[in-house]
């Protein structure tokens, strides 16, 4: 009798639970079936009429019934929640093809990108970075670099001056940093000196009265032209990739002897000759040479004990080559539409 009632309650309750459509109605069902005033309690109230033998059996059945209903409630709740979550997520769908929110990032000037690349290569080879004035003594910019008084680069048509006697100028090259470094530092020296330099050139697609150079210098006992080649070859490989073919040509600078220019084989045509390399198959990269013994001696370094090499390269041309920038004026125009490309 009571067993039948419980069986019936189970069928009704579980059937109703499975049909419940939301979490709220589940709670109502729990109260209805299992609550203090619920249907199971009502049935259990009749336990008193049972024989002592029947009571534990019925008790057991009633406990199982309770846990079965609880389990059904739990299961249904989980199912309903999963559906609800799925619906919620569905409703939150976004159009992933819409653009991301604008996060503005800043950009290093393209020329300084290239400069930093070069600095890092030299730092890796034990070089320090030195810095010096742009308003410079002509003595350092010219005289101590073995550039004689009548050299054309000293003319007022070529160099900016601050004094009538031509004693102070805007440095025309970073090479006075060779002099300054030798005068103030102990040997051995391994340095590079990037910076602004100035020449009296009208602005056009390849000229600017202000531009940038990187100077480099090594002074020690036993430094040779072989060392110059080894070091600069390595730099160029780092800059342009392994296997870059280089060539050294004799050249002339008053403050190095022997002097050379360094070319790399044109990467565009592989040396056959093309517009990029003006048909030569080679692209000029930098000028270099062994520091002139007169320059060493003039800076108080004994050329019979020490030797060294130095190089200088133009930064604008390097950056223009790297990024295929066709007009030097863009570099100093600073249009954000240009800057933000790098």
């Amino acid at each position: 009798m009571m067993k039948d009632m419980m069986q019936q309650l189970r069928d009704t309750a579980i059937g109703a639970i499975l049909k419940a459509e939301n979490v709220e109605s589940l709670e109502a069902m729990r109260i209805k079936y299992l609550g203090k005033k619920g249907e199971l309690t009502a049935i259990l109230k009749q336990m008193g009429s049972l024989s002592p033998e029947e009571r534990p059996v019925m008790g057991q059945i009633a406990n199982r019934l309770r846990s079965d209903i609880e389990e059904a409630l739990d299961q249904r709740r989980k199912d309903l929640e999963a559906v609800r979550m799925a619906l919620k997520l569905e409703s939150e769908t976004v159009d992933v093809t819409m653009p991301g929110k604008d996060v503005k990032e800043g950009h290093k000037h393209p020329m300084y990108n290239v400069l930093d690349q070069i600095k890092d290569i030299f730092i890796g080879m034990g070089f320090e970075i030195v810095d010096g004035p742009e308003v410079e003594l002509s003595k350092y910019n010219f005289t101590m670099l073995n550039i004689d008084e009548s050299h054309p680069s000293r003319e007022w048509t070529d160099t900016f001056y601050f004094k009538d006697d031509s004693s102070i100028c805007l440095r025309t090259q970073t090479s006075p940093m060779q002099v300054r470094t030798m005068l103030t530092r102990d040997v051995p020296i391994r340095m590079i000196a990037p910076g602004r330099v100035y020449r009296k050139d009208e602005v056009d697609a390849t000229h600017s009265p202000m531009f940038h150079q990187i100077e480099g210098m090594v002074i020690d006992k036993g430094i040779t032209m072989a060392d110059l080649k080894a070091t600069l070859n390595l730099v160029v490989e780092k800059l342009y990739g392994e296997g870059t073919v280089t060539r050294f040509r004799p050249h002339h600078f008053p403050f190095t002897e022997p002097s050379c220019e360094m070319d790399i084989r044109c990467h565009k045509c592989g040396g056959k000759g093309c517009p990029t390399c003006k048909g030569e198959g080679w692209i000029e990269i930098l000028g270099a040479g062994m520091v002139h013994p007169k320059v060493l001696a003039g800076c108080g370094i004994d050329p019979d004990v020490y030797s060294g090499w130095a190089f200088g390269m133009g930064l604008e041309r390097l950056a223009m080559g790297e990024y295929k920038i066709t007009d030097l004026r863009l570099i100093f125009e600073n249009d954000v539409r240009f800057l933000e490309q790098f």
Binding site: I123, E128, A230, T231, N233, F248
Partner: peptide, 17 residues
């Protein structure tokens, strides 16, 4: 110029940076 060996003169004796 291109027959001059490619040879470092000695160990790097300074820390760059």
């Amino acid at each position: 110029y291109n027959e001059i060996p490619v040879k470092f003169s000695g160990a790097i004796n300074k820390c760059g940076g």
